[in-house]
Simulated assay, not measured.
Amino acid sequence: MVLPEVKTVEGKILKASVYNGKVMLTDAKGGTLMVTATNLMAGNGVIHVIDTILMPE
């Protein structure tokens, strides 16, 4: 299942998809990250936990 593309603060595009029931984001270089936990309430907002960091070009 492919979801819409996501634009980063820098204007780069990440492609979103669902893999084994979890959201996966892929950058232009093919790097991927998995969203491992969502909607965790914090004192200053909501946190989504990811398993790695994607580096800009």
Rank of each mutant, 00 (worst) to 15 (best):
M1R: 10
M1A: 14
L3C: 06
L3Q: 08
P4V: 11
P4M: 04
E5Y: 09
V6L: 08
K7M: 10
K7T: 12
K7C: 03
T8Y: 01
T8H: 01
T8D: 00
V9D: 09
V9Q: 13
V9F: 12
V9W: 10
V9E: 11
V9I: 15
E10K: 12
G11M: 08
G11Y: 06
G11C: 06
G11D: 13
G11R: 10
G11A: 10
K12L: 08
K12F: 06
I13A: 05
I13H: 08
L14Q: 04
K15L: 01
S17W: 01
S17T: 08
S17A: 12
S17V: 01
S17M: 09
S17R: 06
V18D: 05
V18H: 02
Y19H: 11
Y19E: 05
Y19P: 00
Y19K: 11
N20F: 10
N20L: 12
G21E: 04
G21R: 08
V23H: 07
V23Y: 04
T26Q: 07
T26K: 02
D27V: 03
A28M: 09
K29H: 13
G30A: 06
G31A: 11
G31L: 06
T32S: 00
T32H: 00
T32V: 00
T32N: 01
L33D: 00
L33K: 01
M34Y: 08
M34L: 05
V35E: 00
T36W: 11
T36P: 02
A37S: 15
A37R: 13
A37P: 02
T38K: 13
T38S: 10
T38R: 12
T38C: 06
N39A: 15
L40M: 15
L40Q: 15
L40W: 13
M41R: 14
M41L: 15
M41I: 13
A42R: 14
A42W: 13
A42C: 13
A42H: 14
G43M: 15
N44W: 09
N44A: 15
N44Q: 15
N44K: 14
G45N: 13
G45T: 12
V46I: 15
V46E: 12
V46W: 14
I47M: 06
I47F: 05
H48P: 02
H48F: 04
V49R: 08
V49N: 06
I50D: 03
I50Y: 04
I50Q: 03
D51Y: 03
D51L: 07
D51M: 04
D51H: 04
D51E: 10
T52A: 08
T52Q: 08
L54V: 03
L54Y: 06
L54R: 00
M55F: 05
M55P: 03
P56D: 04
P56S: 07
E57S: 13
E57V: 09
E57T: 10
E57K: 13
